[in-house]
Nucleic acid binder design. Sequence first.
DNA 1: CCTCGATGCGTACAGTGTTCGCAAGAAGCG
DNA 2: CGCTTCTTGCGAACACTGTACGCATCGAGG
Lengths: 243, 243
Amino acid sequence: MTADEQQVPSVWARLDRGRREQQSLSQEQIVAAAVRLLDTEGLEALSMRNLGKRLNAGATSLYRHVASKDELLELVADEIYGELDVPPPPTEPGQWREATVAFAHSVRAMILRHPWIASVLGAAGMSYLGPNLMRITDQMLGVYEAAGFSLGEGNAVMSTVLAYVTGVTISEAAWVTMLARRGQTDQDWFERLWPIAQEAMKPYPRLSRLYAAGVDHDPQRTRDEGFDYGLGKVLDGFAATRA
Amino acid sequence: MTADEQQVPSVWARLDRGRREQQSLSQEQIVAAAVRLLDTEGLEALSMRNLGKRLNAGATSLYRHVASKDELLELVADEIYGELDVPPPPTEPGQWREATVAFAHSVRAMILRHPWIASVLGAAGMSYLGPNLMRITDQMLGVYEAAGFSLGEGNAVMSTVLAYVTGVTISEAAWVTMLARRGQTDQDWFERLWPIAQEAMKPYPRLSRLYAAGVDHDPQRTRDEGFDYGLGKVLDGFAATRA
DNA sequence: CCTCGATGCGTACAGTGTTCGCAAGAAGCG
DNA sequence: CGCTTCTTGCGAACACTGTACGCATCGAGG
């Protein structure tokens, strides 16, 4: 690199460096690039030097727009919260339930699109003050308000459902990143490690019986159905007091 | 160290090194020391060199008993699952509910005792094959079996409740570690950052209204009550189909 | 034109996980 | 007892990490 710079007349180097297309480096660009890097290569590939390389920038240049890696992760988390679809406020009170189901599916899909978020959540929590998260929370409260819930009741429904969804989906996300890191699929794993798992389960008769049955189904569908089933029960609990 | 070894007759050094009290280094010791270190100093303080120091051992010695840091974290996760209290199988079918509540409280207390687990969960998932987790899962399935649930139904209740509990508690854990890292208490935070938070919430009227009310209560009680309320709703959902 | 604040970045530092090879003791075996 | 083999601890080294600092270079404002 330094050899090139001295070999070429320095004017070119200056022109090339000084004003890249667009404004060279901005916080939004950095965050967007970080999300792309995380999606394609996973959490452990996100280093400041790696990220700088993607932006044709030096590692330390990023610190002009982002205070630290931790702060970058908070920004990144809120960035992907912006992908969530908030259903429109219902016109009839009974529609709170399908709106909640739609929102829950949106959250699950978002986490599975960005499974690394599972590892970030434990450190950053929900970054409660992120603008996207605030906007979405407020809009969802509006949904429940339109359905006739009080603010506290609406918040209870939303929080409970969100806890359930993240709880389920973090496990799923951890599973898919584990598979991705080994370059395996669900089927690969079952074929290769199932005998070992079955052997390990031998001292536990109920576990053995439970998983002996469900091995032939495809696991993706099983996860989807399990998610919807549990979600339905949670909503049943709130629907009961509503009626 | 090297200076001491040459200064002192080498016999002492050999005696001291060869057989320390107990058997010097074992996987259980390493895991237990790791849990202690994580509890007292947090996740970012867990490095192999630091852990080695605690055990009067070199960093690389640990690799004789543990394949990698990732594996150590899996072992550590299963270790603390061993602290969970599984309620005894109920004698009457209706008691599944209070048994589930007791288990949920045990899980929440365990996570709050070891809040760093929130950051580990996203990477390791539940290490489904860990012996402690298997034992506990099997015992809980036994609880539901004794209450008259089918194996699949019991698993559904347990999974849903566990998802809810971990979802809620991971957020709480992230919160307390954030406070701990800054050496603050709940009250500190509210006194110092509340005006800023309130200002940030201004564009979101429902959020503002929601949190404007609950500022005078003590947040610990609020979290406890919110947890129990949501848990009750989840159990209501399952109780409904049961009756 | 000249100054000034903002921006990019090379260097450096302390620390990380992990590999490798060596030494020293334990254990099996004659 | 001796001899060999196996296990265990560890120092040195490697490739990397996040980040502080100071120096260049730039566009904008006087």
